[in-house]
Amino acid sequence: MMINPILERELKTRMRTWKTPILILVYLTMLGFVVAIAFLAEFTNYSYGISGFDPTVVTGIYIAISMFQLGLLLFIIPVFTATSITGERERQTFDLLLCTDISPWSIILGKMSAALSFVFLLIVAALPFTGVILLFGGVTLFDMFKVMLFYMATAIMISSIGMFCTTHFKKNISSIIVSYVIYGASLAIPAILIAVAAIISEMSYSSGGSAIQQFMENYAYEIMLFTFGSNPFYGATDLLVSGSFVDNIFNIMGNGSTGGTSILGKITPWMANVIYYAIISTIALLLSRRKLTKLK
């Protein structure tokens, strides 16, 4: 069977260097540190009799670890994907790929899957840390699995932004910086918008109420979905805190609304994230392909 040659080469070269195990070690050490601190704090309280052992505390630790892991992934992923094509350009090997009959999709998917495979390796390697939580109950294996899937979907979206940048810039450093800026803006702009909307709503309330305030009150949930759809912490919080995957599906299939008044109200935060991911990834990858096929 012939696998994508770019994926094969990337995996071979990446896994044979010292950088890879060192990076995994640093990643796991940081996670382990957070786990150790969290457990130490909770069990110290327990052993000194300040409080009795509360299983919900373990769930809190699990949420903290998962969020920390998500933050680390958001930071790491652009470094891998945003340098994939620019790295080839800097090494002067990219032209050699373009003058073969390998398709632009093969180049993009080969590069992206190579970066993602390493990210997935980090996610899987971290499972034993989060798995410790299983010993105490409060979190099921299925809960962990769906969070892992959500992280993978997040990784695909961020990788797509990285691919967009790496195909449109010539230097690694420019590509990485713009990748962070684009992603940072997608997190910050909605937050700013919602803050502005809240201020406007508050002002209109103090002046006796208005249509804007009415709209914001009626569609608060939908506005949240729309503005925070780009923020993976929104979906992650939903998955980690507010119930299981099955519950959310049940809400949609049944008559339950998760909070909104319109049809959009049936969409849960993590679903809003995934829809946003699908749109952004599709656009970013199509633009990346277009850039690779467009000759100057």
Partner: peptide
């Protein structure tokens, strides 16, 4: 390995 990579790119059967 370098040659093998380009064999893959040019779809030379394994």
């Amino acid at each position: 390995e370098y040659m093998n990579f380009y064999c893959g790119v040019h779809k030379v059967p394994v």
